[in-house]
Amino acid sequence: MVPAKPLASAKRMENLRRNWYKFSRNRMSILGLFTVLLVTFLAVFAPLVAPYPKHASAFVDFANASRPPSLEYPFGTDVIGRDILSRIFFGFRFSLGMGVIVLSLVVPPGVVLGLVAGYNQGTWLDTVIMRITDIFLAVPSLVLALAICSVLTPNLFNAMLAVSLMWWPWYARLVYGLASTLRNEFFVASAETIGASKFHILFREILPNCISPIFTKMSLDMGWVIIIGSALSFVGLGVQAPRPGLGTMVSDGSKYLPEQWWISVFPSLAIVLVVLGFNLLGDGLRDMFAAEEV
């Protein structure tokens, strides 16, 4: 009697196609998606695709030190003879890894706090949660991260911890704004008057309506987290030698500018590529989630 799942999945396919249409109307979004997929692929399979996987760690080959770009070393080698291209592939690992870990640390608490505060707008819960987020937002983020990293031992883990600490309030803010609007929708009133639990209202009624902006922001933030991560590495508080952090590589190479420009320029371009990719992807997602107007 009830045509169950097949019909639903057909609808889902239709939705997917419609979303892809909206996403792909802007060519730059596709470029962004392609870049992100490429970088992810290179990062995941770095040991297989890098020409010199060993160069990603403590490796010394003074015979080939400071070679300019050539067929053998497309992006050249650094002052101790390591292949820059291979190190960039491995650098992607740290950058993306940092992005993924930071966002997965940051998004859940930020979203939950924002939901709770937004739904209880005007109560003490709202005041307490949002004032705490304000305090975190008031501290210059990079400075806070620098402070934490220099008090604790400078390493990748502490860098991520520092970045996470200053990042969650943005999600709390975003979701707070959405939730405080959505709670006035009648479907929330309806669930309340029927007697639904707070948990149901927050996570089943309100949260699903916040997903699109959250995803869009996550995509844009991947770029930002990578920049901050690279900045921390650049000043020596992130990825530690001999591991190949993109920021560390730029910083190390900057001493040999402008003669041996390839040592820092190629890692810099790699950062630009990743960040640009995620930003374009984010823009595409935003277009996709935007309401269609005819």
Binding site: E185, I194, P208
Partner: peptide
């Protein structure tokens, strides 16, 4: 209660089944 604006009183992210099911669940 039946609210004025069905656009707002039905959650756009929930299916008809989920919407009608809620009062039954409770």
């Amino acid at each position: 209660i039946v609210f004025q604006d069905p656009g707002s009183s039905l959650n756009p992210r929930r299916t008809v089944k989920q919407i009608v099911e809620l009062p039954l669940q409770i």
